[in-house]
Write a protein that binds this DNA or RNA. Sequence first.
DNA 1: ACTTTATTCAACCAAATAGTTGAATAATAG
DNA 2: CTATTATTCAACTATTTGGTTGAATAAAGT
Lengths: 113, 113
Amino acid sequence: MAHKLNQIFSALADPTRRDILIMLLEDDMAVTDIAEPFEMSLAAISKHLIVLSKAGLVLQERRGRVKWCKLDPEAMHAAFVWIQTFGQLDPINLDTFEEFLEKEKLLNNSESI
Amino acid sequence: MAHKLNQIFSALADPTRRDILIMLLEDDMAVTDIAEPFEMSLAAISKHLIVLSKAGLVLQERRGRVKWCKLDPEAMHAAFVWIQTFGQLDPINLDTFEEFLEKEKLLNNSESI
DNA sequence: ACTTTATTCAACCAAATAGTTGAATAATAG
DNA sequence: CTATTATTCAACTATTTGGTTGAATAAAGT
């Protein structure tokens, strides 16, 4: 796939992958631990991580038999810059995860109309 | 398709659609005029515009036989907020995150009915 | 009335995506 | 050495995506 933005945005288009990214905000994690809260197979999560890794959103470093995954803010920043530049949007200021959830909830509600 | 963010990010994942959005920054346009610089068929562009419209990135208003397309900054802003909030998040506690996953799961189930 | 213009629809196709299961690989533990 | 653990691979399936063409619809122009 040609353009890096294609990979970044399509990586972000999947809710499982967005959830993984949010998990990785807290700490670096091994593939198996990332997979734990999800209801799909480990192989599926492994694939999602490869997608995130190819998009540059996640770095994977193998130590022994464990592959540690960590956020790589670089690609996310590229998407951010694209959107911001596009609309000349002003960065907003949100502080907590609770506010973030609130936003998501509002978004979900408006969607179900 | 489940989450509004899914639609927004996957709409943004296609370079043709990003180009269309950039064209629309300049001015509102009719479908045929949007299609003109691209090498694909008019029907293909029409489909892309429907995707953009469903994602909430573009508004389409029919006047006579012409369908005018204009940017709707709302959805773009939602994506912007998601990314920006993401980067701002403080370490989260896992319980909250599990709740978040639960809510998403319920939401997705109710949508797929 | 007839023709042109604007847009979408319908049917189709190839490729990509997101998931599955079971086997394979490779490192660690006992 | 053997068993367990961590991860991926391979093969398969169903669905979605992005494109095509030709016909359909509907408004406007002559």
